[in-house]
């Protein structure tokens, strides 16, 4: 197990180097001169020249990449030229917000998706199954921004129950924090729940028809025990992988949802940075989320072992 972990961790290094090159290279393909965009409406040529020099834009691409990597290896992700704030500080400021939103959304997704998946597999081809599928289809086909705006109109404008947008730190006011996050978390969780439901359902169907489940039933175990103890454990494996991937996606920022609900998280940070060509922020945030994504995948692999010890690691 330990050797496996070391091997997996060592494999992350080349992956990250490749990812960093990709991030840096792709960004250079963005049209538009970042210095001109950052110089604002007046575009004073002196300011453009100053920004170009500050961003090393006159140097060749590999040199710029090395400048950046040098900083990254020293823990310095650069500085946002628009906000004049170190990228590291911006990440640390936004990370808790995005983490909380992502966790909240995943909890909602799991608590809707997995039970629905189980029910629809166990009660296959019944009204339960059709209803669960209809809900899943709705979740998958409803655009986030539309659902978000509709919820704002209903719960904030018409009923006045929840704040329309914004974010309050849980340390400042927990109730206000939950009130601010419940709509965006539901919007995000709703779509993921649909995916989780479909996967839980198909995994459960496969497992339920397998030999060992038949054996378990033959032994006279209660149906409840068969489903929850024997079948679900195996069926959860693809669901865990998927959950981890979805969580990773959420960490890279729920762009539209954060925009609609004005949640100051990663999604908003990166969108604003792309439109303003604030390269250091884009690079820093993408590198950070890529790293988080890779680590989450590793954690998911380790979680398989915990869920099902029969899986051996070599």
């Amino acid at each position: 197990m330990f050797a496996y972990l070391v091997r997996r961790l060592a494999a992350i290094v080349p992956t990250l180097i490749f990812v960093s090159m990709l991030i840096f290279g792709l960004q250079q393909l963005l049209p538009g001169d970042p210095a001109v965009v950052l110089a604002g409406e007046d575009r004073d040529p002196n300011v453009v020249a100053y920004l170009r020099q500050k961003m090393h834009l006159d140097e060749p691409l590999p040199v710029r990449y090395l400048y950046w990597m040098k900083g990254v290896l020293h823990g310095d992700l650069g500085e946002s030229l628009r906000m004049q704030k170190p990228v590291r500080d911006l990440i640390l400021e936004k990370l808790p917000v995005t983490l909380e939103l992502a966790a909240f959304a995943i909890v909602i997704a799991l608590s809707i998706g997995v039970p629905m998946g189980i029910v629809s597999a166990v009660r296959r081809n019944t009204a339960w199954d059709y209803a669960a599928n209809a809900v899943a289809l709705w979740g998958l086909s409803t655009p986030n921004f539309w659902l978000g705006i509709m919820m704002i109109l209903l719960f904030s404008v018409t009923l006045g129950w929840l704040p329309a947008s914004g974010f309050v730190s849980p340390f400042e006011d927990l109730k206000a924090n939950l009130a601010a996050l419940v709509m965006p978390a539901f919007v995000l969780g709703n779509a993921i729940a649909a995916v989780l439901m479909r996967h839980t359902r198909s995994a459960m169907l496969q497992v339920l028809s397998s030999d060992y489940v038949r054996t378990a039933r033959a032994k006279g175990l209660s149906e409840r025990g068969v489903i929850l103890k024997h079948a679900l454990r195996n069926a959860l494996i693809p669901v865990i992988t998927l959950g981890a991937l979805e969580l990773g996606t959420l960490l890279s920022g729920a762009v539209l949802t954060e925009q609609v609900f004005t949640i100051p998280g990663f999604g908003k940070l990166i969108v604003d940075a792309v439109f303003n060509r604030d390269y250091a922020v884009v690079q820093g945030v993408v590198l950070f989320t890529a790293t988080a994504y890779i680590l989450l995948n590793l954690l998911a692999d380790l979680a398989y072992v915990i869920v099902n010890p029969q899986i051996k690691v070599h």
Partner: peptide
């Protein structure tokens, strides 16, 4: 988003 800005005004935030 101007719709969301307006929704915030209407909901009193």
């Amino acid at each position: 988003d101007s719709t969301v800005r307006l929704a915030n005004l209407k909901s009193g935030q």
